[in-house]
């Protein structure tokens, strides 16, 4: 609760103002709050958008024959790739969707538009996949 709200409630409790006046004051404060929030500079706690998608595969310590893989894909490449996919003709998109379905991936390319592109990329920032077996696989954004 903000200091201003606390003061209004205290004044109401002490009988210095009536309920109508308190309501008006609280409404005035509520109207000012979004403006204040907009003016606040970006805090350090705010999440930065990731720049790269990383895929790291490492063999288990006892597996000396395993391969190490380290791939760093720029996020802007993903964005550009999705934009490129959006200009693929509809009938070709259908064929791609069918091929993906056969592999067990249900993805409708026509649903990916430039409008929800940023949403998809932003969602990737929370992605972390860790798989440990014969090899350790990590997929994350940084």
């Amino acid at each position: 609760m903000s200091e201003e709200r606390r003061k209004i409630l205290e004044m109401l409790a002490e009988g210095k103002i009536n309920t109508d006046e308190a309501e008006k004051l609280l409404a005035a404060i509520s109207a000012d709050e979004p403006e204040k929030k907009e003016k606040q500079p970006d805090s350090g706690a705010e999440k930065q958008s990731p720049k790269y998608l990383r895929v790291v595969v490492e063999p288990a310590p006892d597996n000396k024959e395993g391969e190490k893989v380290n791939i760093r894909v720029p996020m802007k490449l993903l964005r550009a790739g999705i934009k490129l996919a959006s200009v693929v003709p509809v009938d070709v998109q259908g064929k791609v969707d069918e091929a993906l379905k056969e592999k067990g991936i249900k993805l409708d390319l026509s649903q990916i538009t430039e409008d929800n592109l940023e949403e998809i990329v932003e969602s990737l920032s929370d992605l972390t996949v860790d798989v440990e077996g014969k090899e350790k696989v990590r997929i994350f954004c940084e």
Binding site: K64, E65, E67, N70, K76, L77, P89
Partner: peptide, 27 residues
């Protein structure tokens, strides 16, 4: 539409390649 846009979009993909790293290390 696809024919008209494929060129510029392809250029965008090429432009976005900077920073790509692929490293594979076997024994």
């Amino acid at each position: 539409r696809s024919l008209l846009l494929i060129g510029p979009r392809l250029l965008t993909v090429i432009g976005a390649l900077s920073g790509l790293v692929v490293q594979v290390e076997g024994s």
